[in-house]
Deep mutational scan, measured.
Amino acid sequence: DDLEQFAKQFKQRRIKLGFTQADVGLALGTLYGNVFSQTTICRFEALQLSFKNMCKLKPLLNKWLEEAD
């Protein structure tokens, strides 16, 4: 599944880049005006958010990865 794959890759890249889940949540706030909690990022990576929320977060996290690289 696409979302599952993305969540896995996101977590690996985030760790490799040296960011915590909280860092990502704050960075999203800075970039897009939407601060996300560490818990939200954690749940995303664990696929524990609703499908709708996963779909909403994915493009933001994808963009963040591009910026962070």
Rank of each mutant, 00 (worst) to 15 (best):
L65T: 03
N34I: 10
L47Y: 11
R13I: 02
C55G: 08
L3D: 04
K11W: 03
P59K: 09
N34T: 12
N53K: 15
K16E: 08
G29H: 11
V24S: 00
T40Q: 12
K56T: 13
R43M: 05
A46I: 03
D2L: 09
D23W: 02
L49M: 12
S37E: 08
A68M: 15
K11V: 01
Q21T: 06
F36Y: 13
F10Q: 04
E67W: 07
K58M: 05
N53E: 14
A7P: 03
W64M: 02
K16L: 12
K56F: 12
E67G: 12
A27W: 12
N53R: 13
L61V: 06
A7F: 04
T30Q: 15
G18N: 13
Y32E: 08
G25E: 03
N34P: 15
K56H: 05
T40M: 10
R13D: 03
G33V: 00
M54Q: 04
K58A: 08
F51M: 10
Q12S: 11
T30E: 10
R14C: 04
V24F: 15
G25T: 08
F10V: 01
S50V: 00
G25D: 05
G25S: 12
T20A: 05
F19R: 07
Q38N: 07
K58P: 02
Q12M: 07
A46Q: 09
C42G: 13
Q48C: 03
G29A: 14
L47V: 13
E45A: 06
K58G: 01
K11H: 05
Y32V: 05
G18W: 00
T40P: 03
F51K: 15
I15Q: 13
P59R: 08
L3I: 11
A68C: 06
A27V: 06
L28K: 04
A22Y: 07
I15H: 01
K58W: 00
F10C: 08
I15S: 11
Q9V: 10
K8G: 05
A22V: 06
L31S: 11
G18L: 00
C55V: 14
V24I: 02
L65R: 04
D2S: 11
A22M: 05
E45F: 05
T39P: 05
L65S: 05
A68L: 03
N53Y: 08
A27Q: 15
V24A: 04
S50T: 07
L3V: 08
I15W: 03
G18M: 02
Q38S: 12
T20H: 04
W64V: 09
L3K: 02
A7S: 15
L28V: 03
F44P: 00
Q9N: 14
P59A: 05
K63Q: 12
F51W: 05
N53T: 14
Q48E: 12
Q12F: 04
T40G: 01
L47E: 04
E45Q: 14
K11G: 00
E45V: 00
G33D: 06
S37V: 04
L65E: 07
L49H: 04
S37L: 04
G33K: 04
L57M: 09
M54I: 01
G33T: 08
K63D: 08
L3T: 00
L61I: 04
D2T: 14
L65G: 00
L3Y: 09
N62C: 10
P59N: 06
F10R: 06
T39R: 12
K16A: 13
M54W: 02
F36H: 10
D2W: 11
E45G: 00
W64R: 05
T39L: 10
C42E: 15
K63A: 11
V24C: 06
L3Q: 07
L60W: 10
Q21K: 09
G25I: 01
Q48I: 02
L28N: 03
F44I: 03
A22G: 09
Q48R: 07
C42Y: 14
F44C: 11
M54T: 03
L31F: 13
N34Q: 11
F19L: 10
A22Q: 14
N53M: 15
R14L: 02
T40Y: 05
A22R: 11
D23Q: 14
N62H: 15
L61K: 04
G25M: 03
Q21M: 06
F19S: 01
T39E: 15
V24K: 01
F19K: 07
L57R: 03
I15F: 09
L60R: 06
Q48M: 05
Q21A: 09
F51G: 11
G29N: 14
Q12K: 09
N62I: 10
E67L: 15
L49I: 00
L61M: 06
F10Y: 04
L31P: 06
K56W: 06
W64I: 03
R14Y: 02
F36Q: 10
Q48P: 02
N53V: 09
E66T: 11
